Computed example of a mutant assay.
Amino acid sequence: MPPRSIAFFGSSLVSAYWNGAATYYRGVLSALHARGFAVTFYEPDAYDRQQHRDLAEDPGYARVVVYPNRPDALAPLLEEAAAAGVVVKASGVGVFDAELEEAVSTLTRADGSAPLRIFWDVDAPATLERMRADPDDPARACVPRYDAVFTYGGGPPVVAAYEALGARRCVPIYNAHDPATHRPAPAQERFACDLCFLGNRLPDREARVDAFFTEAARLAPAKKFLLGGSGWHDADLPENVHRLGHVGTGDHNALNASALCVLNISRASMAEVGFSPATRVFEAAAAGACLVTDAWVGIDTFFEPGVEILVAEDGAGVAAILADLRPERARDIGDAARARALRDHTYTQRAVTVEAQLDELAEHAS
Score class of each variant (00 low, 15 high):
10 G>R: 01
342 L>Q: 13
316 A>G: 15
322 L>S: 04
147 D>L: 02
168 R>L: 11
38 A>L: 09
143 V>I: 15
38 A>M: 05
190 R>C: 07
259 A>T: 05
353 T>Y: 04
287 A>P: 12
185 A>V: 14
103 A>C: 06
41 F>R: 00
97 D>C: 10
167 A>N: 06
361 L>M: 01
43 E>N: 00
10 G>E: 02
273 V>Q: 02
81 A>G: 07
115 P>N: 07
84 A>W: 15
202 L>F: 13
171 V>C: 11
109 R>M: 10
192 A>I: 04
363 E>I: 07
307 V>F: 02
259 A>N: 03
258 S>P: 11
15 S>K: 07
251 D>Y: 11
269 S>H: 00
198 L>S: 08
95 V>R: 14
25 Y>G: 09
363 E>F: 10
210 D>K: 09
108 T>N: 10
177 H>R: 02
314 D>C: 04
232 W>T: 13
360 E>V: 09
148 A>H: 11
245 G>Q: 08
76 P>K: 02
47 Y>I: 03
265 I>R: 01
27 G>A: 05
88 V>L: 02
100 L>C: 08
143 V>S: 09
95 V>E: 08
186 P>L: 09
86 V>N: 09
257 A>C: 15
148 A>I: 09
183 R>S: 11
230 S>D: 09
8 F>T: 06
145 R>N: 07
232 W>A: 06
9 F>L: 01
342 L>V: 00
76 P>A: 02
108 T>G: 13
225 F>K: 06
327 P>W: 01
58 D>M: 03
148 A>S: 11
273 V>M: 12
292 V>L: 04
145 R>L: 12
73 A>H: 01
212 F>V: 05
255 L>Y: 14
8 F>H: 15
287 A>F: 12
144 P>G: 07
204 D>K: 05
180 A>Y: 08
200 N>M: 00
249 T>W: 07
328 E>L: 01
353 T>H: 13
288 G>E: 12
187 A>N: 08
200 N>H: 11
126 A>L: 02
352 V>F: 04
174 Y>H: 15
286 A>S: 15
347 Y>Q: 03
10 G>A: 12
160 A>Y: 00
25 Y>A: 06
319 A>D: 11
238 P>M: 08
283 E>G: 04
69 N>P: 01
264 N>M: 01
43 E>F: 01
232 W>Y: 15
13 L>P: 06
147 D>P: 04
208 R>I: 01
13 L>T: 09
15 S>P: 10
298 G>C: 04
1 M>K: 07
233 H>R: 10
138 P>L: 05
366 S>V: 13
267 R>G: 06
312 A>R: 06
69 N>G: 00
298 G>S: 05
65 V>F: 05
30 S>V: 10
267 R>E: 02
151 T>Y: 02
7 A>P: 11
278 A>V: 08
173 I>W: 05
79 E>K: 13
116 L>M: 03
192 A>H: 10
266 S>D: 12
324 D>T: 14
173 I>P: 04
29 L>I: 09
333 I>K: 00
345 H>W: 15
140 R>V: 12
249 T>D: 03
289 A>W: 09
119 F>G: 01
253 N>Q: 11
336 A>D: 00
